[in-house]
Computed example of a mutant assay.
Amino acid sequence: MRRIDARSLRGLAHPLRMRILEAIELDGPATSSTLAARLGENTGTISWHLRLLAEHGYLEEDPERGTKRERWWRIPDRTTLDPSEFLDDPETRRALDVYLRDLVERYYDRVRAYLDEDWPAEWQRAAGLSDWRDLHLTPDQLHSLNEELAAVIDRYTAGTAPATTADARTPDRTPDRTPDRTPGASTPERAERVIVQVQSFPRRS
């Protein structure tokens, strides 16, 4: 996992670059033309932003898919960001503000998209839009909470979480959401792609 530093944060903090990165995160490797069609932008603009993302280490070319006429781009590694590292740098704090505000807007858009879609009852029962409001935690406790939640998600991402009875009877068919990065992972036939958003933060009383 690669830590985002000040320079790479300033390179990422642009709404279109963040949309490009999210599109590849969600749907896997892509070309400038496929991304342009998906995002409603022209290919030249997308190509310029792809090269900039690659310069900052967020993307790399996929040589197995690329041709002389068209490049495929993929995400080489996961990244992590610690906002507290940029508090004393006004320029980077502005980039951090752009990044975090765009991130929150995309979280909101994902939830709205889910609510607008017509999912069957079994998926509506399984989904959850919940919050817990009675927590009183120290910074260390909040950090530990987030670390434990991430560890649970990692188990499911790696395909090592316990299967339900229905899942155990169903043959594996499709790989995890990033098949090129986890070639051995697989999901049951009835599985749909799922986004998990965990939001935890302190509040003033």
Rank of each mutant, 00 (worst) to 15 (best):
E41F: 08
T79D: 10
L53P: 07
G28D: 11
S47M: 10
P76V: 03
D27V: 08
L53M: 12
A36P: 11
W73I: 03
S33V: 11
T45G: 09
R74M: 15
L50M: 12
E41H: 07
W73S: 10
D77R: 08
L16D: 12
A54E: 10
E55G: 15
R17P: 13
K68R: 09
S32Y: 03
T34I: 05
L12M: 15
R51K: 00
D77F: 13
L21Q: 04
E41A: 15
E61W: 00
I75D: 10
R65M: 12
E55H: 04
E25F: 14
D77Y: 12
T67A: 13
R38M: 13
R71M: 10
T31P: 06
E70L: 13
G57A: 14
Y58D: 02
G40R: 05
P83F: 06
L59R: 03
H14G: 14
G28A: 13
A36S: 11
N42G: 13
E64C: 12
P29T: 00
H49C: 13
P15M: 11
P76H: 01
M18D: 06
L50C: 10
T79A: 14
P29R: 13
R38W: 01
L26I: 07
S47L: 13
R19M: 12
S47E: 08
R19N: 11
E55P: 02
L16H: 04
I75S: 13
T67C: 06
R17G: 15
H56E: 10
H56S: 15
D77V: 09
M18A: 13
T43L: 11
N42S: 12
I20L: 15
L53V: 06
A54N: 00
D82Q: 15
T80K: 03
R78H: 04
S32V: 03
A30F: 05
L59N: 00
G40Y: 03
M18N: 07
E55T: 05
L50G: 09
R17K: 07
S47G: 10
I20E: 02
E22F: 08
D62K: 01
D82P: 08
A54I: 03
D27Q: 10
D27I: 07
E25K: 06
G40W: 01
E60W: 01
E55K: 05
T43A: 15
